[in-house]
Each structure stands twice: as C-alpha cells, then as structure tokens.
C-alpha cells in the first residue's frame, strides 16, 4: 500500500499496538500468519508451488533447461529468477514497478544462486559447456504484505517438488550428443536441506515484527531481510527501507528472525513430505 494512503491516526494505532505486543490482527510480534502450500500444480514445469495466505497468492514455477554456464562459474549450473508483479495492483507500490521487481529478483538471486544453498555442481552435464539452468519464475497474483518471505517459502517448496530428467551423453565421432530420458524413474531430486527461507523483520516504533501486513510495512522505519536455513544458520542479510538501524537492533532482529524461522522450516518440511506421500489429484486452482 502506498504510504500516503494510510492516515496518521491509523499509523499511530499500529505503532501503539506493536509496542504492546498486540498487532492489529491479534498476533504477537513474532507470529507468522497461517498459510497453505501446494506443490506440483502446473504440469508443464519441472517443479511448482503455490502459497496462499489471507490476501496473498503467489505461484512459483521452475523450468529446467539445458544451457550455457555463467562465465565466472563454468563448472556449475545456475538459477535465474524473475518475479512478475503485473497482476498485483501497481498503484499500491511506492515508486516505479520496474525497480520494485528488480529489487526482489536480485535479492532472490543473491540468496539462492549459490553453492551454499543448492548443490549446483550436480547440475553440470558437460563441464564448461552444457549445464542445467533452473528458471524460477514467481507470479504474484495478489499480495498483502511480506511479499519476499512468501516468495521464498514458495520457492523452497517448488525446489522440493522439482524433478530434473536424467541426461546421457553420447560421444559420436567427436560430437557430443545429449539425450534426455523420458523415464519418470530416471529423474533427479534436489536436496533442499541447505535452502533457506527469508524472514523479514520490520522495525515499527521501538519494536520489530515478523511477517508484516501491508499496513505495518507502511509504518516501518527500517527492514532487515534474514535468510535462515534448516541448520539454523544465517545465509543472507539485507537491510532495506529508508531508515537506519542501530547495530544492537540488528543483532536482536537476527535472533528474533532465527527463532521465528525454526518452527516455520520444520512445519514446511513436514507439510511437503506429507503432500508428497498423499499424492492427491490436483483439480484446478480455484476448485477448493
């Protein structure tokens, strides 16, 4: 929501509520909103996931294609991100929408496209020439605050759901030919134990909240993005927003985010495993 559409009285109400650990919807400062996650809903992708929360709907699709490796990292595969916000009401974003999506895309790339997160070496087919490139595209259908966190959870679920087909390399008279197998049993799963989720901590007044709604984001004077993985290690930090933060506040925010991320990661993994086992027939997006 554009900050100019929120009245001063409403802003004060939110700040006072946060100070007393009771937010506008009744949550505590470190509570996440409940969300629903489904995987494997788009058949044309190698992996997909959809996250639904009150007011938020994000769809992530992963397509794996064979391509050239990046110049600096010729022995590993890589990830390419794109966030599409066009369905999301553009008047609600402060500033140019291109800058907004660039910021999201670059943050995701910086956090996820790294050896610390995924075993990118396993995506190599022919070292230096042909690698698997994972194109991760997020479509934001609607959003009620905390967009980057939601996209990161959906990306993690989609990566869990991703199956990469097996490739055999045939050397015929010096020309290397790649054959992609159609056998569903010959598919590779990706290991997601080092994949982090992003927890954004917003500073409102003198306290900080996790999983901010749109209104709370308008009142925040500084935001710290913290990426925490299953091993409870910090993968990335980024300060965004126009205010400045005290170093001690930063350390407290890191600790708060880590505590909030522990149940989040555990629940997410359990839900994903449960979904994989049950193998429900997907019957369309808006059917249920």
């Amino acid at each position: 929501m554009s900050s100019s559409t929120l009245s001063e009285g409403r802003k004060q109400f939110i700040v006072d509520g946060v100070t007393q650990d009771c937010r506008a919807d009744g949550r505590r400062c470190i509570d996440f909103r409940r969300f629903q996650i489904e995987t494997g809903i788009v058949s044309n992708t190698n992996g997909s996931a959809r996250l639904r929360q009150y007011g938020t709907d994000v769809l992530v699709g992963i397509k794996a294609e064979i391509g050239q490796p990046k110049q600096e990292r010729s022995n590993t595969g890589h990830l390419e991100f794109y966030v599409d916000c066009s369905s999301y009401n553009t008047t609600e974003i402060d500033g140019h929408i291109g800058d907004f999506t660039t910021q999201l895309t670059k943050s995701l790339e910086r956090i996820y496209d790294s050896e610390n997160v995924l075993d990118l070496k396993s995506l190599t087919i022919i070292a230096g020439e042909q690698v698997w490139v994972l194109y991760i595209d997020a479509v934001v259908l609607e959003c009620c605050g905390n967009l980057l966190d939601c996209i990161s959870i959906a990306v993690k679920a989609a990566l869990y759901n991703t199956r990469i087909p097996g490739v055999s390399v045939n050397d015929e008279e010096g020309v290397l030919e790649l054959e992609i197998s159609d056998d569903p049993n010959d598919e590779k799963k990706l290991s997601i134990d080092k994949v982090p989720v992003i927890v954004s901590c917003n500073k409102i007044g003198h306290r900080y909240v996790v999983d901010a709604t749109q209104e709370e984001e308008c009142c925040s004077s500084g935001r710290l993005l913290i990426a925490v993985n299953d091993r409870n290690n910090i993968c990335s930090l980024q300060k965004s927003g126009t205010g400045s933060l005290d170093p001690s506040t930063i350390f407290e925010m890191i600790e708060t985010a880590r505590q909030a991320a522990v149940p989040l990661n555990q629940e997410l993994l359990q839900t994903l495993k449960r979904e994989e086992r049950s193998n429900n027939d997907k019957c369309g997006f808006f059917a249920n």
Partner: peptide, 19 residues
C-alpha cells in the same frame, strides 16, 4: 550517530559468527 544505514551479507554462518 552509531546507526547502520546499509547491510548486505551473503554466505552461511551461525549466529555468533554473523555477529
């Protein structure tokens, strides 16, 4: 003012090393 106005960190570290 002892305020941090930009912070970017990448890698994998536990909380103490991060601090």
């Amino acid at each position: 003012l002892n305020q941090v106005s930009a912070l970017i960190m990448n890698g994998e570290l536990d909380v103490d090393s991060t601090q």
